[in-house]
Design a protein around this nucleic acid. Structure first.
Lengths: 337, 337
DNA sequence: GTGAAAGCGCTAACAT
DNA sequence: ATGTTAGCGCTTTCAC
């Protein structure tokens, strides 16, 4: 096979000449637009296939002023939660002719701004992006873009256009209420130390509010940086329990470190959930199969992706107030008594 | 804020008029191309920023016949391994002005064909795609595309252009040799039943070859469908050990089900690694922190992504033979004696 | 049912 | 250092 880097790509004109049909009609056939006789249709299709013609969407997009792309902007791919959201988006976009294009920000507003600028320069038909906190420039770009903008995951804040998500403040508060009702009183929190992870921050705030309403204060905190893993969960748990051995509950900012904590506690022989209760956040089912099921809150990831896609595709119209609020769902597991 | 869906987007011409500078010079400033005086530069930048101008890459791409996109085509995002590959690609592309665009095939050749067609219609500067098995039409498209095509993950097969990966046959064979050397003889295999997961298939083939070379045959097999989770690992392990209680080793097609198997065996009180040895594949560190570390093979995911990106970006030239073969790395863990 | 002409918003190439 | 012209490969629009 000869080096492919030489040839120039084929154009509509090539197909037109090979089939003896005008460029315009070729274009119609290839897009299934307008009436074309079965005979010419056949000729065109054959010619296109024989030559190996691949349409040029750059030219098509410029001419039609429409591009079938949806920009999806998320903080991370290694987080386990975003692939789920993407799955929902992708499933719902499948029959619309729209295609998701993913950009990753690494939780950096500056990077988000760059990614948005870059994506908007392709003139997509819509934007789905995680979170409500954006730089001023990012908000301006989005507001000026003239396309639907769906902010997802989080409902605690101001919309640019339309929001689909859950209230993380509420998720945190409800978890606090659950564990207080179960009689736990010496509560610790283990979470990520990322000022830019606003959802984790809001859960923590809601959690503290919930405790405060019952006159309870956090009795311990442990923060970490970087990604989440079972190992990190173990280390943090060991540390917080060393510093505050009388804790009777640990609330983790996600299931992965929560599961690590659970393993550590089982190793050390803690009586769970009686001596010590545990809970995480997200509701990832990858981790079902651990010795106990960690209590958690389902963040409704797939459904958030689906609804956002439906909105951006125009399958569904935004409600009054432009906020679709889903309910975070408590999943008891075995680690709360 | 008024509904943004009305306004038409700004053009170079708008910036030109607002700044009193020709479109061409505006274009030069915005792309940092050619000499522009500091004064006009300033004027243009101010005007662009004030107006909120976002360049139109559709038009730019058509005019320049160059697009700074790299198509990255992978089977799945929920597999844990592909985010790592993407991380490598993305890191290495960061300073090149090239941007990865991800397409997902769900292990379906038909879908791969559609995704490729779609991506190629954007005339990207290069393609990185997982695996060597493609439909005839896909291979033709790639060969005709005129751009660099890097096939990744797997080196056991024919290249379209250039390959970066490991030999999964070798990975399987080496694992067989390790465990035979450790004295295991009653070997079982637990794997996915996806005819289209060619890499898993090749590992299994290499594994059986390695066993056969010592006159050993697989003493049990268990297949599953769908995604991998700890729970599925437990179930499969229970099943295979019920049917063949005398097995002394289990080789899993990935770390996630392997870890589930490990948990099951620990629950049941198996003496690991003496009575029963276990190994997985991939080398994911998310699972460090389990009671024992599962033996596995590091598939060199991040490095594969990096090298592929270097090739496609022209930072590195393909070797003679056009195959970059990395060595799968055995990681002993605690589950092989 | 089919075709011809104009133009989408940029940049390459060539002035000046 | 800046401007002018032509044209990238399609689709829109209008004509037949």
């Amino acid at each position: 096979m000869n080096n492919p880097r030489s040839r120039r790509s084929l154009t509509l004109r090539d197909v037109s000449e090979a089939s003896g049909v005008s460029e315009m009609t070729v274009s119609r056939v290839l897009r299934n637009r307008g009436d074309v006789s079965a005979a010419t249709r056949e000729k065109v299709l054959t010619a296109a296939k024989t030559l190996g013609y691949v349409p040029n969407k750059i030219a098509g997009g410029l001419a039609s002023q429409r591009v079938n792309l949806i920009a999806v902007v998320i903080p991370s791919l290694s987080n386990l939660v975003f692939p789920d959201v993407l799955g929902g988006v992708s499933a719902e976009l499948d029959d619309t002719g729209l295609q998701p294009v993913v950009g990753v920000t690494n939780y950096s507003p500056a990077r988000e701004e760059m990614v948005l600028y870059d994506m908007l320069s392709w003139r997509p038909s819509g934007v789905i992006l995680a979170g409500l906190e954006h730089s001023k420039a990012s908000r301006a770009m989005l507001a000026n873009s003239g396309i639907p903008v769906i902010e997802i995951m989080d409902t605690d804040g101001e919309a640019v256009d339309t929001i689909v998500g859950i209230s993380h403040i509420r998720a945190g508060r409800e978890m606090a209420e659950r564990l207080l009702a179960a009689g736990y009183r010496r509560i610790g929190f283990v979470g990520t130390h990322m000022p830019e992870d606003h959802r984790a921050r809001k859960r923590m705030e809601g959690f503290e509010q919930g405790l405060a309403a019952a006159g309870v204060q956090l009795a311990g905190r442990e923060y970490y940086q970087g990604g989440s893993s079972l190992l990190k969960g173990r280390e943090l748990t060991e540390r917080i329990l060393t510093r505050a051995p009388d804790l009777d509950f640990l609330y983790y900012s996600n299931d992965m470190i929560g599961a690590g904590g659970l393993l550590h506690c089982l190793d050390k022989g803690y009586d769970i959930p009686n001596r010590l209760g545990l809970a995480g956040f997200n509701g990832v089912d990858l981790l079902d199969g651990l010795p106990m099921r960690l209590a958690t809150t389902d963040a409704r990831r797939v459904e958030i992706g689906r609804r956002a896609a439906r909105l951006v595709a125009g399958k569904e119209t935004p409600p009054e107030g432009r906020v679709i609020q889903l309910a975070p769902t408590f999943m008891p597991g075995d680690t709360i008594r």
